[in-house]
Design a protein around this nucleic acid. Structure first.
Lengths: 217, 217
DNA sequence: CAGGTTCGTGATAGCCTCTAACAAAACTTT
DNA sequence: AAAGTTTTGTTAGAGGCTATCACGAACCTG
């Protein structure tokens, strides 16, 4: 049952130190943003001197990539357990918002402003497609909704991103709308653009979700 | 007609140098992101040595703040001319997308991932409320749409952010939906999350806009 | 216990922001 | 025009960062 193969005690120590580094990194990101992440500061916090961290992560970029991977896996796991407990599209939305509000820095690492040159490694896009599959499943399971929107037709001609998923075009359309609309609310909320505006972001999120479920997408 | 008051030649030189600094800064941001902006590199590019730039901007933060201000003013100007040429809500959406696609780095500076500690100065929130006013105007001018959505009622109780604007609650609701939905599409597109997915982001944007205009918001 | 592997260290190079002291140029005032 | 004041740019330097290197020390393995 143990996925962490109990190897040599050295291996154990290594993964433990890596885990602590990542933990401190998340704290730093939460308080000062990903751009202010400092390997040096983490090392000093852990009582060891600067370059020692390079035994565990080849570079600052590799650490950040690992954090991105972790964030994706966390979101994918949230979706997986939601699906396992019988969540429909509304359930997925609820799970998404709960996760995002609880881990704003993780959400923003995934969906926030990217560094122009950066390209995610292969396995990360794999996890991202697992998330998309869960979304497509929920959308196909929902309702036929004979959507006559011209964009649905366009999607039927450009469905390579669905990766062989048997979703009808209206489900593809609804999945994209789900993604973009909920992201629209969440990203603005997490970025603080709704502060001092008075209304409750959760209600706006709920209203968008309701529109997504009752209207044809 | 000249807004730039022809003051002393020194003043002229100063604003010119500041302008060139900002221009180089935008180039850097476009190629490496805002976090990689380096005053030092800009100075060297301009043929002067490091600390000279601090005569023009007190700190790196002040330069970035100025860039954010510039971005807000650029967007507000785009909206202003759109309104002046008789644009309705659809026209605003078109103007928004055109501006965002042409100035992705500006859009992301405004609506992208914020630095946790940062607080925008007063005048910037002023420009931002001008943008919101244009949006609310367009939404009130549109259609009555007796929206019975519960969120509209909530907005009627929390309309302080509209700053005295006489928009009916359904217009407030539509303005928020306009903002969040179009931002949802735009931000994901600009962040590159649609690349390699095959479909045309412009069509998704158009579909979202159409939904916004034909359905009750 | 001998041997190779891994880990942490200090030194160093090369970036960066930002301050301070100083020189030179440019406007202002007399 | 001469003298004085303000603005501009310079170099030097403190302190931070990423990252590499060579070296000693600790550690598992045979």
């Amino acid at each position: 049952m143990a996925k962490t193969e109990a190897k040599s005690p050295r291996e154990r120590y290594r993964v433990q130190v890596r885990a602590e580094i990542k933990e401190r990194a998340w704290e730093q990101i939460a308080t000062a943003g990903a751009s202010a992440l400092s390997l040096n500061a983490i090392a000093k916090q852990m009582g060891m001197s600067g370059p020692a961290l390079y035994r565990y992560f080849a570079s600052r970029d590799e650490l950040i990539t690992e954090l991105i991977r972790e964030a994706y896996q966390s979101l994918a796991g949230t979706f997986r357990t939601a699906v396992a407990t019988g969540a429909d599209l509304a359930g997925l939305a609820h799970a998404l918002r709960g996760w995002a509000v609880e881990n704003p820095q993780r959400y923003l690492l995934i969906y926030g402003t990217p560094v122009p040159g950066y390209h995610a490694p292969e396995d990360i896009t794999g996890i991202s497609s697992e998330i998309m599959t869960a979304l497509l499943d929920a959308c196909t399971a929902l309702a036929p909704t004979g959507s006559a929107a011209p964009f649905s037709a366009h999607l039927d001609d450009h469905r390579d991103w669905a990766d062989g998923h048997p979703a009808p075009p209206s489900a593809l359309h609804r999945a994209l709308a789900f993604w973009t609309r909920l992201h629209g609310v969440l990203s603005l909320e997490l970025a603080g653009h709704f502060t001092n505006m008075g209304f409750d972001p959760a209600l706006l999120f709920a209203a968008e979700l309701d529109d997504l479920l009752t209207h044809r997408a």
